[in-house]
Design a binder for these strands. Structure first.
Lengths: 217, 217
DNA sequence: AACCTAGATGTCACTGACTGCCATATTGGC
DNA sequence: GCCAATATGGCAGTCAGTGACATCTAGGTT
């Protein structure tokens, strides 16, 4: 999924992706320097060497130029989930799917992971970006149930939705902790997986029989 | 909390609230008739008999004129939560707080509940409103931990946050089911409480020991 | 090589949300 | 009836996002 050279014939698509990355990098630098609100789309476009109109041909909104899933994260997740049985669908299934994806993008460190962390920090510091990112997660929560095949009763659709939403929450929390624990020195990527596992474990102590949690303060 | 006559001296505040309600009603009718996107703020302002500039003095955004918490829902929730002990804070605490608030606004039926249902339907049908509503929930998730007093470790802050986020998810799901179950005839308000309890019960079967759920399709 | 067509890019004009500023009207308290 | 807040309106401006049209670029064909 992350290997961009797989669409051999489509050199046009590769160029498109390259331009997208250029625009995203330009935007990241401007946002980090002057803030999201204080940066105009015109400035980003100029910095990336394209016209403002072209910017909106690559990204539907100003927010999306930072949030856009350049590395096929979503697609990887879906392919992991295609294997599971819709009839016997549980939280553990998505958790392991997310885990695989996180572990996968963990391998090629520096490049991708560093970019992710930059973006994550920016998102955390910018309300507008937080909202947009949140919207992305929620859109996923509504698309996945149909994709999985939980189209039967409204009751089971909600069931699947809740599971997905909780899984998303776990990922969000893990990403936040990861971004906040500022460069602990050694490989931050493995750190992310550990944080994720930890968050999932803590989640398990909340909703179940153990309503009164033993862990606090 | 819902009783607006309690701020006796502040008749100015009451007028302000009255104007807000007028604008909201005008907006609701226009949105329901022509859709959210197709309706301009200028049209809403004209229908409510105020200038466009004044509209933005009452609501910060176009979305907010529908989502604005006119009935003190948030405040009621907070006062319910002020009683709980921060050190021993569990999901059941917020669940019961939400339950109280829902039960409370259940009492004065027709008026408020009908309006809520209108709004809820509109939100479900309008992506822009869904996102804005989502942002509201999330803002709450980040404010409440501080309000409660979970300012100790980052770990416990995340703990509280997860609990709140799950509680919000329960409320969202309940509201959605409530709005989708279109006017079952008899009192829809009591219905809401029942739906909420049901959602909470189902949530309990997800995160805990019973990872593999027995209920599907 | 000249060519032809699809996709990429730029320019222009426009809508609509939202803000700051200033002038004016309304109104509650004395 | 007066004074000081406070609410309101009008105006001009910024900025995100869109549609339409013209132009340019590049891949594949004869």
């Amino acid at each position: 999924m992350i290997d961009t050279s797989q669409q051999v014939g489509d050199l046009r698509a590769r160029r498109r992706n390259a331009t997208r990355i250029e625009i995203q990098q330009a935007a990241l630098e401007l946002f980090e320097e002057n803030g999201f609100e204080a940066t105009t789309v015109d400035e980003i476009a100029a910095a990336a060497g394209v016209s403002p109109r072209t910017f909106f041909r690559y990204f539907p909104t100003k927010e999306e130029c930072v949030l856009f899933d350049l590395y096929g994260f979503d697609e990887a997740l879906e392919s992991c989930l295609r294997a599971v049985d819709p009839a016997d669908f549980a939280l553990a299934d998505i958790e392991s799917a997310y885990r695989d994806v996180i572990a996968g993008f963990d391998d090629q460190r520096s490049e991708v992971a560093a970019n992710f962390k930059r973006i994550q920090k920016l998102v955390l510091a910018t309300p507008a970006l937080s909202r947009a990112a949140l919207g992305r997660y929620t859109d996923k929560s509504r698309q996945l149930p149909e994709m999985i095949g939980a189209g039967t009763s409204a009751r089971s659709r909600v069931h699947v939705r809740m599971i997905i939403e909780i899984a998303n929450l776990e990922v969000q929390c893990a990403f936040e902790e990861w971004a906040e624990s500022d460069d602990v020195g050694d490989e931050g990527e493995r750190e992310l997986l550990a944080i994720y596992d930890d968050v999932c474990a803590r989640m398990r102590t909340l909703g179940g029989v153990a309503t009164r949690s033993a862990e606090n303060a």
